[in-house]
Simulated assay, not measured.
Amino acid sequence: MQTHWFYTVWPFIGVGGAIVMVAILLTTDTFRDNTTVSRWRDPVWLAWLAVPLYWVHQFEEYSLPVLGFDYSIQQMICKKLGFPPYPDCPIPLSFYPVVNIALMWFGAPLAAYLCGRNVLIGLSFWGLLLSPP
C-alpha cells in the first residue's frame, strides 16, 4: 500500500520529541510547579510526564510496520470495526496522524499547562495511558 511519507515518519518525530522532553523533565525544574516536594509528587510535573510517554506509545503503535514487524494498527482497527482491510477500508489513512497529533501533540500539552488551575484536566491523559486496550 503506497502512502505519503509523513504517515511513516510522524511517529519517529514524536519519539524524538519524547526523548528531548524526558531529558528536560528529569534534569531541570522547567515543568515543575512545586519545587519543595519531589517531582514525583508534583501533579503539574506528572501531567507533563504523560505527554512524552504517550508519544512513545504512539511510536510503539505506528512504527512497527516500518521496523519490519507484521503489525498494523490501521488494519486492526478496520477489522475490529467490521471493515475490509486497506485499501478498501473507508477510514482514510490521514485519520490516524491527524487525530493522534491533534490530541497528543497539542491537547496533552495544553492539559498539562492547565494542570496548575485544574488538576483533573492536567492528569486526564494518564487515563488514556493507563486504560486497557
Results as ranks from 00 to 15, higher is better:
residue 114 L to G: 01
residue 53 L to E: 04
residue 112 A to H: 04
residue 65 P to C: 09
residue 69 F to Q: 10
residue 113 Y to H: 10
residue 66 V to P: 00
residue 53 L to W: 05
residue 102 A to E: 03
residue 96 Y to Q: 05
residue 76 M to V: 08
residue 91 I to P: 03
residue 92 P to E: 08
residue 56 V to C: 15
residue 52 P to E: 05
residue 66 V to E: 12
residue 62 Y to T: 02
residue 107 G to C: 09
residue 68 G to T: 07
residue 106 F to S: 07
residue 77 I to E: 06
residue 110 L to I: 11
residue 114 L to S: 04
residue 108 A to D: 03
residue 111 A to M: 10
residue 89 C to M: 12
residue 99 V to K: 04
residue 107 G to L: 13
residue 102 A to F: 15
residue 78 C to R: 03
residue 70 D to E: 10
residue 78 C to L: 06
residue 63 S to H: 09
residue 107 G to P: 00
residue 112 A to Y: 02
residue 69 F to M: 11
residue 62 Y to L: 07
residue 94 S to G: 13
residue 108 A to H: 06
residue 85 P to C: 10
residue 81 L to K: 07
residue 59 F to I: 04
residue 91 I to G: 08
residue 61 E to A: 14
residue 66 V to D: 14
residue 62 Y to A: 03
residue 53 L to I: 12
residue 103 L to V: 13
residue 103 L to H: 03
residue 56 V to Y: 10
residue 89 C to P: 04
residue 101 I to F: 12
residue 88 D to W: 10
residue 64 L to F: 12
residue 91 I to E: 11
residue 91 I to W: 09
residue 87 P to W: 15
residue 70 D to Y: 08
residue 104 M to L: 10
residue 97 P to I: 06
residue 64 L to D: 05
residue 95 F to S: 09
residue 66 V to G: 00
residue 114 L to K: 06
residue 116 G to S: 13
residue 69 F to R: 08
residue 61 E to F: 13
residue 95 F to N: 07
residue 53 L to M: 13
residue 84 P to L: 13
residue 71 Y to D: 03
residue 67 L to T: 06
residue 107 G to I: 06
residue 77 I to C: 02
residue 99 V to N: 07
residue 102 A to R: 02
residue 61 E to K: 05
residue 66 V to T: 13
residue 80 K to G: 03
residue 90 P to V: 05
residue 108 A to P: 00
residue 59 F to Y: 14
residue 114 L to D: 03
residue 84 P to H: 09
residue 102 A to Y: 04
residue 66 V to Y: 13
residue 88 D to L: 12
residue 65 P to N: 06
residue 93 L to E: 11
residue 82 G to N: 08
residue 89 C to V: 06
residue 79 K to R: 13
residue 80 K to T: 11
residue 106 F to L: 14
residue 73 I to G: 02
residue 115 C to F: 01
residue 79 K to Y: 14
residue 105 W to T: 03
residue 73 I to Y: 12
residue 92 P to K: 07
residue 69 F to P: 01
residue 65 P to V: 08
residue 102 A to Q: 02
residue 54 Y to F: 14
residue 64 L to T: 04
residue 54 Y to G: 00
residue 83 F to Y: 15
residue 110 L to V: 09
residue 96 Y to P: 00
residue 99 V to L: 14
residue 96 Y to R: 01
residue 86 Y to W: 13
residue 65 P to G: 02
residue 61 E to P: 01
residue 116 G to R: 15
residue 104 M to Q: 07
residue 83 F to V: 01
residue 89 C to N: 09
residue 109 P to V: 03
residue 55 W to F: 06
residue 106 F to E: 03
residue 52 P to M: 05
residue 77 I to F: 14
residue 109 P to Q: 07
residue 65 P to W: 14
residue 112 A to F: 03
residue 84 P to T: 07
residue 97 P to K: 05
residue 94 S to Q: 11
residue 110 L to H: 03
residue 80 K to C: 02
residue 58 Q to W: 02
residue 87 P to Y: 12
residue 102 A to I: 14
residue 97 P to Q: 10
residue 96 Y to S: 04
residue 69 F to N: 05
residue 110 L to W: 06
residue 60 E to T: 08
residue 111 A to Y: 01
residue 62 Y to E: 12
residue 97 P to C: 08
residue 68 G to H: 08
residue 60 E to F: 13
residue 109 P to R: 08
residue 68 G to W: 07
residue 73 I to T: 09
residue 88 D to K: 12
residue 105 W to P: 00
residue 59 F to T: 01
residue 79 K to D: 11
residue 53 L to D: 02
residue 55 W to H: 04
residue 115 C to E: 02
residue 90 P to W: 08
